[in-house]
Nucleic acid binder design. Structure first.
Lengths: 250, 250
DNA sequence: CGTATCTTATTGTCCGACAATCCGACAAGC
DNA sequence: GCTTGTCGGATTGTCGGACAATAAGATACG
């Protein structure tokens, strides 16, 4: 019958107040935040309380500090931060390899098409460069996987669509471990990826959206075959293939 | 030439330590965290320091508390939390209406196809129910928009793909404001949405993935026409259409 | 066995303190 | 003039202790 009447601790209200001003662009990126003592004075709370609020915003990516700096500045969440959070969440939700693949399949053709339509000269060059880098790579699975991710990333950038760029990040992050296994175990994987990338680059160069989309679809479909050949069960949870590469902090 | 030698404050290391244990599933969902005092004892830091660490994890969605509860429990980031963070980030990155629409166009057909392939009986029913709810709605733009979002959401759920579900949330969130304008200003919008939903439901019922995908593509394309008819410039930044509905906390 | 009551533990908030160090300014030297 | 050394002040990171409010658990009671 009645809603529970909301109570919010002070640190929450402080952080919301600051967040609201950032979203309303009253505090703009790059601007330094007032000092903790000053904030405490203005909000009329203790500095400890302010600090708790700041930690929340800091981990949300809305506040950050310059390298080795002391003061906090207003920032935008970086792609990496967002990607980290999201992929972490997806791991905890038990996302499987097949889920990630399916997302890749759904999203990438659209991105490739958009990139082909709207590519700039520099965008195209970035895409081509990452394809070349992959082609030139020998051994070094880690780096090769990073190259593949960079290729997708470059397409996202070239599409000029921030939504694509941000959505790409977590997907690629989750893809990497299993892709590493494929490249490691499937001999023909590299050449197949290489040629698919070539086709996509060509299509983007010609601003031929349907062709870019089509080749990307094939490219992604190939990954699925890669999983089968590499013997990775599609229902493996992402994160299971990770070999405890979390830097354990104690 | 040299890497900056990293230094990490204690609150950061504490939060990382706890986060690592959660990701490693040594701390599982639902489990209560030790009390702040106990954590301070174990880490050999002050309680204030522990509290700062906890705030970070709390806003990451890894810790939460039961309604009106006092103690912290290990939780998984909810879809809403993730969606909130991501859509907030996208707003700050200046994502435009057209970007969101494009993402919708890229993702939804794939989701619809996956849903059609793997739908369960209850999943189908949820989809159909949200379509019925939208059809029955009169006036109440707000609620109608929520119904449309619920329809997409139900499809995501039915796909059984956690990645889809999580990626959907921020997109829908950003879509809502502009969709509200469309429904408000374009007379035929409701009937068009209604009939598209009908087709999609039917295709999902028949487990006809291509048809579901195709109708979804049309459905989304229709939105674009909606923007034009409603007179919403595609380059409008999402968030600009928001009428200061942020609960201003002071 | 369920319910009211009492205790205790725990969180939210405050205060004050201090070391480390970042910042800016200013002086010195090539 | 530009780099390097010096210095004082400002700011953050961390600590210890304190206390009110209240959630959680235990206990007595009907």
């Amino acid at each position: 019958m009645f809603e529970p009447l909301g109570y919010a601790p002070a640190y929450w209200r402080v952080s919301e107040a600051i967040r609201a001003r950032i979203l309303r662009r009253e505090l703009v990126e790059g601007e330094p935040l007032p000092t903790e003592t000053e904030l405490a004075r203005q909000f009329e709370v203790n500095r400890s309380t302010v600090r708790e609020a700041l930690r929340k915003l800091e981990s949300n990516g809305l506040l950050g500090r310059r390298r080795g700096g002391k003061r906090l500045y207003v920032t935008r969440p970086t792609r990496e931060a967002i990607g980290g959070d999201l992929s972490q969440a997806l791991e905890l939700h038990g996302a499987r390899v097949v889920d990630v693949w399916e997302a890749l399949q759904a999203v990438q053709p659209g991105i490739a098409a958009a990139a082909a339509e709207r590519r700039s000269e520099t965008g195209l060059e970035a895409i081509a460069a990452s394809a070349r880098r992959f082609a030139a790579r020998e051994g070094e699975q880690e780096a090769a996987v990073a190259d593949v991710a960079a290729f997708f990333d470059a397409l996202g950038e070239a599409s000029g669509n921030h939504v694509f760029v941000l959505l790409n990040e977590p997907i690629l992050r989750l893809l990497k471990p299993s892709l590493a296994v494929i490249i490691d175990r499937v001999p023909q994987a590299r050449s197949r990826i290489e040629s698919a990338q070539k086709q996509i680059v060509a299509a983007v160069r010609d601003q031929d959206a349907p062709r870019a989309s089509e080749w990307m679809a094939r490219h992604v479909r190939d990954f699925r075959r890669g999983y089968e050949v590499a013997g990775i069960p599609l229902s493996t949870e992402v994160g299971e293939t990770l070999d405890a590469d979390l830097s354990s902090v104690s």
